[in-house]
Write a protein that binds this DNA or RNA. Sequence first.
DNA 1: TTGTATGCGTTATCAG
DNA 2: CTGATAACGCATACAA
Lengths: 346, 346
Amino acid sequence: MTVADIATAANVSKATAARVLGGYGLASEAARKAVLEAADRLGYQPNDLARSMSTGRSGLIGVVVGDIENAFFSLAVRGISDTARAAGLNVIICNSSEKLAEEREMVSVLLRQRVAGLIVAPTDAARIEHLQAALDSGVPVVTLDRSSPALATDSVCGDDRATASAVLQRLQAAGHRRVAYVTAMTSRSGRLDPAAPIGISAVRARIEGFLSASAAADVAEPQKLVFTNATDDASIAGIVDKILSQAPRITGLLASDSLVGARLFRALTARGVTLPRDMSLVSWFDADWTRVTSPPISVVEQPTYLFGQRAVERLIARLKGDTSAPQQLLIPTPLIERGSIGPAPA
Amino acid sequence: MTVADIATAANVSKATAARVLGGYGLASEAARKAVLEAADRLGYQPNDLARSMSTGRSGLIGVVVGDIENAFFSLAVRGISDTARAAGLNVIICNSSEKLAEEREMVSVLLRQRVAGLIVAPTDAARIEHLQAALDSGVPVVTLDRSSPALATDSVCGDDRATASAVLQRLQAAGHRRVAYVTAMTSRSGRLDPAAPIGISAVRARIEGFLSASAAADVAEPQKLVFTNATDDASIAGIVDKILSQAPRITGLLASDSLVGARLFRALTARGVTLPRDMSLVSWFDADWTRVTSPPISVVEQPTYLFGQRAVERLIARLKGDTSAPQQLLIPTPLIERGSIGPAPA
DNA sequence: TTGTATGCGTTATCAG
DNA sequence: CTGATAACGCATACAA
């Protein structure tokens, strides 16, 4: 059932039918009634594809996240979906699996679908040519959870640097001198590689905050307290063994995300380490699991639903023609204290 | 940059350019080279919208889940995305929030986008007119996690009925006579309402399995052991209080999903109930949190990534013209024993 | 207020 | 092998 069918059925021209069906332009009451009646009777359903072709606007926004399966992103996606729908936009979701090549592929696919705008959690802050190209071709882009100095566009991120510093200071105030930061970021050596820049800006910001607060407290060689490659149970087990065998003793742990946190917790528990007596632990992201452990885990709350919401708001503003300078939104990510921070053991 | 632009730049006709760019029809080596060169030079990007308009095929599939934020669905969505992408299809994701009206709206929106097919987790097995309409208009539909006897189409579900029976029997074998089933399903009375049919088929199947295994073991009035409305912390607290005050004592709990399970666990722990000494607990879905508790929780594993994968496979088969009878795929959902099932206390 | 004619970027048909 | 040309379903400038 097309506009043409309705038009003939209602004895009006295609243009008139299109006007009332599309809700634009003028039409007499009689014409409107006839068209609506015919549309209803014949079960007319507008073809948004054709509409988009005609208008050039698509009503679709594309989202590329690292992994929808991760609660961090799935909550953000919910925020994006809800906000977008409320504005009459639909959402196409893609995973990059945190791989640059896949991210590029997804962006390209979305651009071919002529999405009105893009929300992306870029895998590598240094490799954003594809996003720049989208921007150049007039498609607004807002980056989520991450930003790139090389990309002049809106971003919505957590306040990672300040939070990392604050959390470390909280631990230091409890007497912890040696605190490790454990991250899923990969590196050749398993430690921080000063030569290799960190691609994911959120990761870099947290490590910077961690290092600067370490330096401010005169911690010796804080880079050696950053443990990378925490990608699976086996690697985390290795890291935990390394951490537990250090002298002077490491008494506090920061987990870069909730998956790393959960694995750290399990590895520690399996080795008979009691929290917070023997070890203090703080994990990024307020995941479900952090509230059922004994003790419950102190976490950095990342309101990613809000991240998503804000990202869509920025996108819509740009879609409406806002040409003001790119905004770097920094969302506060407060520490929620539960039971996994204790005084440093003697 | 359109086909026409490339054509003029390459000094061939629009038709020839379209043929090589679209990868169909014949073209001489010379023409092909010229077109490809021009396309590369001018940065041609095909317009999938126009392509879809022309061909009638859209390369998009629509997905409507209850809540993407729920790990159960987000894992399924990952399975759907991965499988779809591997087949060159893109995915539009929508949430119904388990509300019929929203589900209808989403389906309608997706249909207007002319999706090639639909994967839906229907909120109400009795209200599937909108899905039937999609089917009638030639858009294949496969239902996920749920099925409807009223809808003759493919479905991919867990083996809920048999699993519920098996889990209860496992508990009975450990000596548990009175086991409660706790579900987020809403009902007026807080108990099973014999008059009101259960909309979500997965929920119904589990309760049926629970009741039949109860009856087979001569449990008196098993319907009274089904507790509904477990929708938030407050209601779960109330349910737990009710359960703990029953005589004869209830010694085992089945949680309908991982959210209910987590909340039950917290409420039990808060009341000093020790698992599995005082109470045994089994939760549906192998969520992250079930492996960090003490004891770790025995769960019904629902391989929802696989659910998603299978659903896409069915959809693609239909898209390719498979007109065989609707298939009701039942995926095994085995019990993973960890530490939360113990012998029934005396 | 209504209708005619044209365009959006493809695919696809059918002569040449 | 190639090139006009007509769809696809809608929006829209312009004319009536």
